[in-house]
């Protein structure tokens, strides 16, 4: 156990835990914004897969990282148009339509990967960028300030999302629509418009999360996400619909995963317990929620389409 508490090991464990948490964080932040306005999107995983594939394909074709990430993000937006149309305009059952979007993304991304790419080829990924001044702080610098730009972006989006939700008119409208759409409607807020916008933002984030996931591994394969999108949705509940809570949930999940791997590599966890140790992130997240999030209430009309009376 002593080997674990060395500067190098701790630094890298936390740094890679943060990197591992980034796709979860991006996807979960987007989902948070959507859910605050009352819309559940269970299709996140499928959208992440499509976003990751677009990023991968564009990078393979052009070699341009920025273009690739933009393509992944734009794919998310595109899927957002479909999701919003179905969930908001057609007022479909959101839980079910999300499963549909998920299956579509899973099948379509696998299909395209096999027909358009086939052999897994690695792509270049975003290099870590040290933040001048901060990255040389002992311990902290290596943990937090030597990451790729997408990681900084994801964590910057946490205060931004908090600010938007709590301090702007738009944020107030989002929450009003999620808590009492009829009242918001009577005050002249367009419920459909607000929800369209939050769903678009959420799906765009999901596309970006797919790009971030791809940047983490540097390669695409069938079902790359391994249900990470569903875990991201779960983390929204964990974070009690608050961006900061969601951030802590993502970090907890990512860090526990990396700590387990580190302990295995140090021989702290014996091989015989390898499989069972791999359940730790899931078990700890559920147990943590059992103790933490019971006090918080979800948006009042979560998952319910709004129908104007009369």
């Amino acid at each position: 156990m002593n080997q674990f508490f060395t500067v190098d090991v701790l630094t890298t464990t936390i740094a890679s835990g943060i990197a591992l948490a980034t796709p979860f964080l991006l996807a979960a932040l987007g989902e948070t914004i959507g859910q605050r306005s009352g819309v559940i999107n269970l299709g996140v995983d499928g959208i992440m897969l499509l976003g990751a594939f677009s990023t991968y394909y564009v990078e393979l074709q052009t070699g341009n990282l920025l273009l690739a990430i933009l393509a992944g993000t734009a794919t998310g937006t595109l899927m957002g148009v479909i999701t919003a149309f179905v969930s908001v305009t057609l007022k479909a059952e959101q839980g079910i339509s999300g499963i549909g979007v998920y299956l579509f993304g899973l099948g379509f991304s696998s299909l395209l990967f096999q027909k358009l790419v086939g052999t897994p080829l690695p792509i270049s990924t975003l290099p870590p960028v040290g933040i001048p001044g901060l990255d040389s702080i002992p311990l902290i610098g290596g943990m937090f300030f030597n990451q790729s730009l997408l990681v900084y972006l994801a964590f910057l989006l946490v205060p931004v999302a908090t600010f938007v939700l709590n301090r702007t008119t738009y944020g107030l409208k989002i929450k009003a629509v999620g808590e009492n759409p009829a009242a918001a409607d009577s005050l002249g807020v367009s419920v459909a418009l607000i929800r369209w916008s939050t769903v678009l933002i959420g799906c765009t984030f999901a596309g970006l999360a797919g790009a971030a996931l791809l940047m983490y591994g540097g390669i695409f394969q069938i079902n790359l996400t391994q249900s990470e999108g569903f875990i991201a949705v779960a983390l929204v509940y964990f974070g009690a619909w608050r961006p900061v809570g969601v951030m802590f949930g993502s970090l907890l999940y990512g860090l526990v995963g990396v700590v387990i791997l580190t302990w295995k590599s140090l021989g702290i966890i014996p091989l015989s317990a390898s499989d069972l140790a791999a359940t730790a992130p899931a078990v700890i997240t559920v147990l943590a929620l059992l103790f933490l999030a019971r006090r918080f209430r979800q948006p009042a009309v979560l998952g319910r389409p709004y129908e104007r009376e009369g």
């Binding site: 890298t12 890679s16 796709p23 996931l213 394969q221 069938i222 391994q226 791997l261 295995k264 390898s274």
Partner: peptide, 23 residues
């Protein structure tokens, strides 16, 4: 050896490799 518990989880494999490098 680290067994990640999955044949197909690319992220976990990357994380395991990163962990090793840190160690």
């Amino acid at each position: 050896p680290v067994y990640t518990g999955s044949f197909s989880d690319v992220s976990l494999m990357s994380a395991a490799a990163t962990t090793f490098v840190a160690n």
